[in-house]
């Protein structure tokens, strides 16, 4: 464990909690892409199946349970509890265009052609594009609530910090996982234009609105 991975995990946890509280407190999921949240629930489910088989540390197991629990709670609130506030018209990204190629790639390029390993690889590839429906929805509505931009910032920051974690582990431990690194770089790149808008607008107190 190193500082980049710890702050990365905490940033990820912060994002998940921010979103959960935003929906719970405002009793509304307006501006939130339910499709992205479903993809994240799939990412955690396929990646954390080893919860039952491999014990790495108390921290590792606790965080996995928290991530999975929050992900499903968020999906439940979007599609059940507050479904009246779900903006389905703007959440129109075709997720099959993500899941199918990612599934095919996970079968073709992986570390080991075993069931668990292919699921893990699928989860890594899917996570790198899971935010696209959310970013697409913001581009369609042309704006995002400020709390939603903080959620996205923490979510994008988490994988950016993981990149520093991988540099650290390569340098100090000689460890590197090319699949996770490539997917993590792609994932972070997808946030770049959002990061630019976040820094130039939201941090200056303005609302995030895209030129429609």
């Amino acid at each position: 464990m190193n500082i980049f991975r710890l702050t990365g995990d905490l940033s990820h946890l912060a994002a998940i909690i921010i979103l959960l509280l935003k929906i719970w407190k405002s009793r509304s999921c307006a501006g939130i892409s339910g499709k992205s949240q479903i993809l994240f629930a799939i990412v955690f489910t396929t990646r954390y199946l080893d919860l039952l088989s491999t014990f790495i540390s108390l921290y590792n197991s606790c965080m996995k349970v928290i991530y999975i629990g929050c992900a499903y709670a968020t999906v439940y609130m979007i599609y059940m509890k507050f479904r009246a506030t779900y903006d389905g018209n703007h959440d129109s990204f075709r997720v099959e265009f993500l899941v199918v190629p990612v599934g095919g790639l996970a079968v073709l390029i992986n570390h080991d052609f075993s069931f668990m390993e292919i699921l893990w690889t699928f989860s890594i590839y899917l996570e790198s594009v899971a935010i696209l429906p959310q970013l697409f929805m913001i581009s369609k509505t042309g704006e995002a609530e400020t709390i939603t931009t903080h959620y996205l910032f923490c979510l994008g920051l988490y994988r950016a910090l993981y990149i520093f974690n991988w540099v650290w582990r390569f340098y100090f431990e000689g460890f590197f996982d090319l699949i996770a690194i490539v997917a993590g770089v792609v994932q972070t790149i997808l946030y770049c234009d959002f990061f630019y808008l976040y820094v130039t607008k939201v941090l200056k107190g303005k609302k995030l609105s895209l030129p429609a």
Binding site: K64, H111, W120
Partner: peptide
């Protein structure tokens, strides 16, 4: 690719 299937990261 040499197997690295013990994933200790979240």
């Amino acid at each position: 690719v040499i197997g690295r299937t013990q994933h200790d990261e979240l």
